[in-house]
Design a protein around this nucleic acid. Structure first.
Lengths: 140, 140
DNA sequence: ATGAATGCAAAAACTTTGCATGACG
DNA sequence: CGTCATGCAAAGTTTTTGCATTCAT
């Protein structure tokens, strides 16, 4: 949809093959939450010869430029998604691994209130619900 | 306060030196949120000769036994704290690194509602607010 | 005594970095 | 053309695992 080279220029980044392609991968990805490894794999599968190190470097730059957002889900690896300006939180299904985005104004409001009450302001926040389908009976 | 060997037995874990000591470290720690490395360092400084691998193994077992809770803060390493039965979330100061615990019933309630609305039930959740002192002016 | 727990070191998973080559403006 | 980006491989972090030894019951 958007013009990638243009976005890169606006972000003050030199327009290079790898950067454009990585941005495209993130946009086209059906599951919009990709790890660095997944981005790299997607590139290779598309015949793009980009090194994993470059993927990490570029993703880090994109994050710094607010082009993408990085999330640290449980399990030690990060995932990235295109930042469309909208903030939202995530629900991760522990059985299927699928990621659902959601946003709740009231939660946001309460968070601000809590930080404020302690004399702080929020720089960032991280809310992830780990869930399972209601029907599944995992008796304990 | 509590009898550590007793707690271990109740959790179905064999009472061993390292396990008792690690439980003590977690209880005595002034900052109650320790990483595996920190637990290990604390042990060594106390003259306890425990391997780092054992610390990881024991912490994993303790977590499985609900004796402790593991948190994955941003930055790639986990921290652990004694689970006292109370659930709470965390606020991490980005300038001092200090961790503040809080709990808000309304947020909990809304979270359940959101999961429910999508056909899920919550297995676990993770809410961390990254904050900075209100007065501090970090111009960008 | 016997099976589980430990320590050490090696390995694994994820991410960063150094350096020579190649590409962008 | 000069500088910055890239690729490769090596190094860094954090956590896990294999195996012989030690310990709890």
């Amino acid at each position: 949809m958007t013009d990638k080279p243009e976005e890169l220029k606006k972000a003050g980044l030199k327009v290079t093959g790898p950067r454009v392609k990585i941005l495209q991968m993130l946009e086209e990805a059906s599951d919009r939450h990709l790890s660095a490894e997944e981005v790299h794999k997607a590139l290779v599968e598309n015949g793009e010869d980009v090194g994993l190190a470059t993927v990490y470097r570029v993703l880090t730059q994109f994050e710094a430029a607010d082009l993408i957002v990085r999330h640290n889900f449980d399990g030690g690896h990060s995932v990235y998604e295109l930042s469309d300006g909208d903030h939202h939180d995530h629900m991760v299904c522990t059985e299927t691994g699928s990621v659902i985005e959601f946003f709740d104004e009231e939660i946001e409001r309460i968070q601000k209130k809590i930080a404020d009450r302690h004399g702080y302001e929020i720089v960032a926040h991280n809310l992830v619900l780990y869930v399972k389908p209601k029907s599944t009976d995992a008796s304990h």
